[in-house]
Write a protein that binds this DNA or RNA. Structure first.
Lengths: 336, 336
DNA sequence: CCGTTGTTTGTGTACGTTCACATTCCCGTC
DNA sequence: GACGGGAATGTGAACGTACACAAACAACGG
């Protein structure tokens, strides 16, 4: 009984029913000033009645503005990145923007290029890059993106295009805390070598130790997982020539603590452990984890607001947020 | 020195440089069969050379196909949902689709409607709903969506539009395991009342106890967080009239275990604990957590493949995936 | 009463692509 | 050597919207 093909109502349908021209409808939609209140209301009534929805594609085509922010992520679903994505989505929506997500399939150049191509095909107006590998940032630099973008990682190469938590400062904070407690033999399990954050946290660790002329050690390169922390821990604890561990993130810290218990060591009695990120679970580890807190939602929000001001022609101040040390029960002075 | 406004190259630019008509270029782009290999190559070369990218908006406008799958999520960034989103993005991309994410600001009807409106304005071809509250599914039912959609939660109301892990079976699995160990006084901390999964897991818990004529108790309604598990645990353990706990998710299990230690109880010596989800960290809790594993990536993949077959006119089999009990060290027979 | 100004509304066109249809080309066949 | 017929290519729409410009209308002062 229904007509064969129900075409969605368009701006002309609304105009006809409201007894105005399509342009008037367009003006109502775009909140143009010069429109009589009565006609505006009439148009709005019709829109409501027939359930008209503006066609985004047509809009995007004619304005060449998509009102979309692209988010480029790595393939994994870590706590930090996903928290930031959520914050980005929120901030974007409040500003009338949508987000579209593309993840890179691998760290290789073709994959990165494909992902950015896809975003550009969608005519995103700005891009947030969460993919935290060095190579990704390098690739982005080379591909000279035509839209404003911001990276949530601070590569030195990134310069002024980043909005991030100061990872070096975080690494220093963690290490300094252990030093202050009296530890002199401090080990570090880092993230993967090509990750920007891993590199920076490691640098903070090394700087803090060097400042006090303490022995530095070649950090173990991990993969951020609790599993790695565990197995690396089992291995390292056979020697146990250190009394404190700074783990590159909370998950590895958790795995390492697990290894401590399995090796008959008590935390923090025999071994102090500091993590990084302050995931919500960290407060309930056994023992509750001393860690470095990053404000991921804040980063996401700031990234969006930064992009939005740039889109409006302003110049925004990129920059860094300071992390914060959260002291819990996993650290104590070394046993003597 | 550069021209004022650099317009992106379009299909006609390509045509001119390749010495063909714009339609021929279009045919190359759409992999039409009747095209000579030599001309096809010539066009592709030009495309490569000038860095031409098809305009998605124009495409979407004329075909009224956006090649986009919309994802509707809740505002939180839990492990399960985000893992599924990643899987969805992957599966979609392999099929040539993009995803756009919208989260609902609150559980209220207007917010849900706004989110769905936004997705429809973007002309998404299909929708994946991850928002796990009962009200969201009800709202979706009422709003009669015109595109195929699938929910990753199985509300009974959902019927055949869901692709999910059987949460009731999971709840039974967890509870049955505790019964098999000899526990008769089993407590349950559930998720929030209006969450579909919370309800279903609770139902599995109640069913398993009823089957054996064991005492059921009014479950505590939590909020999924480790914090809640901790504080609820401190409270519950003042009575300690139970020997086993089935927590609605791993985070609450972690918090509860924390409360056990703080209350001087050993896990699993004095108290057995089972979680739900099997987040990667669960294997390294203290003690490693017995839990119910959900295959989130699989769910995401299946949801997409289901939608894609529906988009091609086929009828797909919705359905459920069985969860799996992972036995670790947090459960043991009750102390006698 | 007319020109001036400002407000409100209407008309043509462009955005970049695909679809339907028309045309040309090439090759084998009678 | 003209004739079919399929393969390859070209031409004119159309999708739904916003922008530039034009027109209608009202208000106001000289």
């Amino acid at each position: 009984m229904e007509p064969e093909k129900v075409r969605a109502p368009n701006i002309r349908d609304v105009a006809r029913l409201a007894g105005v021209s399509y342009q008037t409808v367009s003006r109502v939609l775009n909140e143009h000033v010069s429109i009589r209140e009565s006609t505006k209301q009439r148009v709005l009534d019709v829109i409501e009645e027939i359930g008209y929805r503006p066609n985004q594609a047509a809009r995007a085509l004619v304005t060449s503005r998509s009102r979309t922010i692209g988010v480029l992520t790595a393939q994994n679903a870590d706590y930090g990145p996903t928290t930031s994505v959520t914050a980005i989505e929120h901030a974007a929506r409040e500003a009338g923007y949508r987000i579209t997500i593309t993840s890179i399939a691998s760290n290789e150049y073709p994959s990165i290029k494909a992902a950015l191509d896809q975003l550009q095909m969608q005519a995103v107006e700005a891009i947030v890059v969460i993919a935290p590998q060095v190579r990704v940032l390098e690739a982005i630099r080379e591909l000279d993106i035509t839209v404003p973008y911001v990276t949530l990682q601070n590569a030195d190469l990134g310069g002024d295009r980043s909005m991030s938590v100061d990872q070096v400062a975080g690494g220093r904070l963690a290490t300094q805390h252990l030093i202050d407690l009296g530890h002199t033999e401090i080990m570090h399990i880092s993230g993967p070598q090509d990750w920007i954050e891993a590199e920076a946290r490691m640098q903070g660790y090394l700087e803090a130790l060097n400042d006090k002329d303490l022995r530095t050690r070649a950090p173990i390169l991990g993969d951020w997982s609790a599993h790695f922390g565990y197995y690396a821990g089992l291995e390292l604890l056979r020697l146990k020539d250190f009394t404190a561990m700074f783990a590159g993130n909370d998950q590895m810290a958790l795995g390492f603590i697990h290894a401590c218990w399995d090796s008959g060591l008590s935390v923090p009695g025999d071994m102090s452990v500091v993590g990084f990120d302050d995931i919500p679970e960290a407060a309930h580890f056994f023992p509750p984890l001393t860690t470095v807190r990053q404000n991921f939602p804040e980063i996401g929000r700031r990234a969006v607001s930064l992009l939005l001001t740039e889109l409006q022609g302003g110049t925004a101040t990129h920059g860094q947020i300071m992390p914060e040390l959260v002291i819990r029960r996993s650290t104590a002075p070394p046993a003597r």
